[in-house]
Design a protein around this nucleic acid. Structure first.
Lengths: 335, 335
DNA sequence: GGCAGCGACTGAATCGTTTCGGCGAGGCCG
DNA sequence: CGGCCTCGCCGAAACGATTCAGTCGCTGCC
């Protein structure tokens, strides 16, 4: 037996319109009617049907967020920030996990479109985004997270990854390292490319410094371990004296391979720096130097822009927010 | 301009019912009509409105999952398993994060109820669950995750935490430790209580073994660090010679306090074992011994039970699945 | 006393999809 | 050739909340 507004209305001897008003604009209804309706609601155990509300409203009160990897604490932090801001306006966050897979990304975008979400936050995998265009045509705001749109036509919240990469490698140069290996991939991910670009710049600015690129298939601990093993198996003379990993998960994998499964000293033989500064980085075998990004602030700001855009409607000018990354030095790159 | 089935029907010169059939039972429609309707859909860029479908269907195709802490990798693993199983049936997972806070838990349950979710998966905080009762009365299946219901009236997927606690402390006894401290809390969380109970049993079974309880406010790295600092500041003679932390996050915090911020050797001075065996445990300063739980399998199985219950309807007998935990020995408890 | 204005409430229309009884055309059989 | 069945399609009803034009009764003012 389902209880609808109609049942409540009958029980309280009022019309359905009044019940709706009690629910949404109680100040428009006389106090004792409010009282009576509330009592009926409680007695019947009435709970609003969100689907019906959304159907009428034309869109849902959820915001979709698509991240590259839920298991990466960086993204769960972003999600937390986003959720907090969403909750301030009584909205819900729908979390989708693309796993760096364009098909999954597409599936979530389709899903969000069917749900008529209030807006979409996404760390897009590629540049080719017809689906995002379609969403926007429908009037659904889209905000890019951790990435800027090439033509600035989308709002975005990002951290300057080129600067971050530069910071990391300049730091490696400062502690005297010259043969740097960059571990990261795939190169379809913008963050990876930008961090590498930053690394290149720092290398070029430092006489005698060389850069080697070890490409991985994804940004996971497992892939990092594989890369670390590859380095460990080389003759000592061919090993780099410093490694810059595209994120902390990779760095932790590299660390496991070098130090725990092998006998390479960090930072003695090879210095190591990661990216994101996740909580666990500081608790690693060798506490990990990293590039810090304000993860939850990114999420918070992204939802903020999204809601602003949703409220403004069509005459909205996309806004790009860029945060600056910050170097965090720990044991793994101590001179 | 919104495109509805009606527009598609007009464009393809068929009725709305036929469009719906093309969408849901194409085999009931003649091939060339299907073709024509599909073309119209593509041309108009029609996307189904989920709210309307749900309204008609009476419930949504989402499954709600409420976890104690999204930032705990154990729960994200559970969520992944759940999502995988849900996707097999074309369903979506709604992830809610109670943060060990009953108000937030309640807010998510309300939300899920309004959304008329297909079912709810929950790691409940307390025993007092009138809201769960209400959901079930409405016909919404509820499956307890990582917890059994006292009266077996709910389906559940759990790991035997008492056995897990026993395993951990028996192992500490085996490597010769006798003064054990249990770090964990709050005691409103069943998992904590059960693991402690297991610890007690192992202690009682070992002559000369003592157990001290250091209660924490939550199961986080920060709280673990606080507990570790408290131990570090004691005179050496009053310190335990082994610590069993109620989860790996706590254990990592304890480890930071003892070894990185202090000079206590692990396992030399104090052996340390955690619980959950999260990925990061093996990459800690001192690789962490732990009690492994099949996280993603738990999530997968939970959704499986949920869907079975949803399909069976009222004549369903709740089912309890219990997995056995497993001891994983690493550096932190090496003799 | 008449009338405008206001507050409280009503109830039908609406959102977009699915379902289902029904209808017409064509084929098959006796 | 009539009756019956099947197939393909039609279109109205239903899901449940919200909205809005409109009704009713009362107050206050001229």
């Amino acid at each position: 037996m389902v209880v609808s507004v109609r049942d409540v209305a009958a029980a309280a001897s009022v019309s359905v319109g009044t019940v709706s008003n009690v629910l949404n604009r109680p100040e428009k209804v006389s106090p004792d009617t409010v009282e009576r309706v509330r009592a009926a609601i409680a007695e019947l155990g009435f709970v609003r049907n969100d689907a019906a509300r959304q159907l009428r409203a034309g869109r849902s009160s959820s915001i979709g967020l698509i991240v590259l990897d839920v298991r990466n604490p960086f993204f769960t932090d972003v999600a937390r920030g986003a959720e907090d801001r969403a909750a301030e306006d009584g909205m819900t966050l729908l979390l989708g996990n693309s796993d760096e897979n364009p098909d999954r990304e597409g599936a979530y975008l389709d899903l969000f479109e069917q749900q008529r979400v209030h807006g979409v936050l996404i760390s897009p995998l590629t540049d080719d985004l017809p689906r995002l265009e379609r969403l926007r045509k429908r009037g659904t705001p889209v905000v890019l997270v951790d990435r800027e749109s090439a033509d600035r036509s989308y709002s975005s919240v990002a951290v300057d990854d080129v600067v971050g990469g530069e910071l990391a490698v300049r730091h490696l140069a400062d502690i005297g390292r010259r043969r740097v290996a960059f571990v990261g991939g795939p190169s379809s991910i913008r963050q990876v490319v930008d961090r590498l670009e930053g690394a290149r710049r720092a290398v070029e600015a430092t006489p005698g410094m060389t850069l080697e690129v070890i490409e991985t298939e994804s940004l996971t601990v497992l892939q990092g371990r594989a890369a670390g093993e590859q380095i460990r198996e080389r003759p000592v003379s061919e090993r780099p004296d410093a490694i810059f990993a595209a994120n902390d998960l990779l760095a932790m994998g590299v660390l496991q391979a070098l130090k725990m499964l092998g006998t390479v000293e960090v930072p003695g033989d090879i210095a190591l720096i990661g990216y994101d500064d996740i909580d666990f980085a500081s608790a690693a075998v060798v506490p990990l130097s990293s590039i810090r990004q304000p993860a939850s602030l990114i999420g918070y700001t992204a939802v903020d822009l999204l809601l602003k855009e949703a409220a403004a409607g069509s005459e909205f000018t996309p806004e790009q927010v860029t945060f600056q990354p910050e170097l965090v030095v720990r044991e793994s790159t101590r001179a």
